[in-house]
């Protein structure tokens, strides 16, 4: 099908974009890569009055070094994120997870910021941003504010972005010490979304796990941290047995849905298996 008619704005700066959003009427949609938005508009599940296309806002693209963090522009495509030297050096988890997103055509247009703002519970990047304690920089007509990942994902397809606001960039703190990372994704066929996935970030110190941060994909309406596993692993010996034992509590505090791909109890089982695998790999075992 063809989308319903809409007015089209193509700003070239963040200020112009905010202006266009403010003037766009009651139902304005921001378009990043369009890889989630165009399908939804084609099915007429969305029929915005105005589309504000960020494609030409050059200041939103690219990755830069900002001392204690790397900063990823919201409009940086999945392809460019995956191949970026700063991402590969400081946050290889993002590259690893992004490689599993969709397919090369979708990755050529879909963006890091779009995937995070879309906040699909099965999307791979929200749990990764959560595990890395990323910060979200949001612009509005009144200025900019920064929201931590733990507060950005509010509900199913809902984020801390208010009407009229724009996600500008994502700050990913550089990690000090010896860190390992792993994204374990389970899906049915090529190009499919995660049934469940686990993002693990582990700091090792003298044969011990000093700190573990674990983000869960598709275990609830928003990405979640596996807090019980993180607590069990803090200071624990880095052995397969300890990790297996800790991973048993991965489903604690989650609320996975039942759908065409899997029942909730299957997801609760799967998350334990994937947590064990992800933490084991991130711990270098």
């Amino acid at each position: 099908m063809i989308p319903a008619a809409f007015a089209y704005a193509r700003p070239s700066t963040v200020d112009e974009a905010l202006q266009a959003i403010a003037e766009g009427g009651d139902d304005v949609k921001i378009m990043a890569g369009g890889q989630s938005l165009i399908p939804v508009m084609r099915l007429r599940l969305a029929a915005p009055e105005t589309v504000v296309d960020l494609t030409r806002v050059a200041e939103l693209r690219g990755v830069r070094d900002d001392g204690d963090a790397i900063v990823i522009g919201a409009m940086t495509t999945h392809h460019d994120v995956m191949t970026d030297p700063l991402v590969l050096q400081h946050a290889p988890l993002i590259a690893e997870a992004t490689e599993t997103v969709a397919d090369r055509q979708v990755r050529a247009r879909g963006t890091f910021g779009g995937a995070l703002a879309h906040a699909d519970p099965a999307g791979d990047l929200p749990a990764v941003a959560l595990a890395l304690d990323a910060d979200f920089v949001i612009a509005g007509l009144g200025g900019r504010r920064t929201v931590p990942a733990s507060e950005f994902f509010v509900d199913y397809l809902t984020t801390a972005l208010e009407e009229g606001e724009l996600l500008v960039e994502i700050r990913v703190p550089k990690l000090a010490g010896e860190w390992g990372m792993r994204y374990e994704k389970f899906n049915r066929v090529a190009q499919a979304w995660s049934i469940v996935a686990v993002a693990a970030v582990v700091r090792r110190e003298d044969g011990h796990i000093a700190e573990a941060r674990i983000g869960l994909t598709n275990m609830g309406a928003t990405p979640l941290r596996a807090s019980a596993v993180e607590a069990a692993l803090a200071g624990a010996q880095a052995s397969p047995e300890t990790i297996a034992e800790a991973a048993r509590s991965a489903a604690e505090g989650t609320a996975p849905s039942s759908d065409l791909n899997a029942q909730a109890d299957y997801r609760e089982h799967l998350v334990q298996v994937l947590t064990r695998r992800a933490v084991t790999a991130a711990a270098g075992l």
């Binding site: 099908m1 089209y8 369009g34 165009i38 399908p39 084609r42 099915l43 055509q105 979708v106 247009r109």
Partner: peptide, 25 residues
């Protein structure tokens, strides 16, 4: 109708894209 099949793939500015998931503008 779901951006899955790839039959519509063309190159836009040198990269393969699904032309059903790009606006002509």
């Amino acid at each position: 109708d779901t951006s899955n099949c790839g039959a519509c793939t063309v190159h836009l500015d040198g990269a393969a894209v699904k032309s059903c998931t790009v606006l002509a503008v």
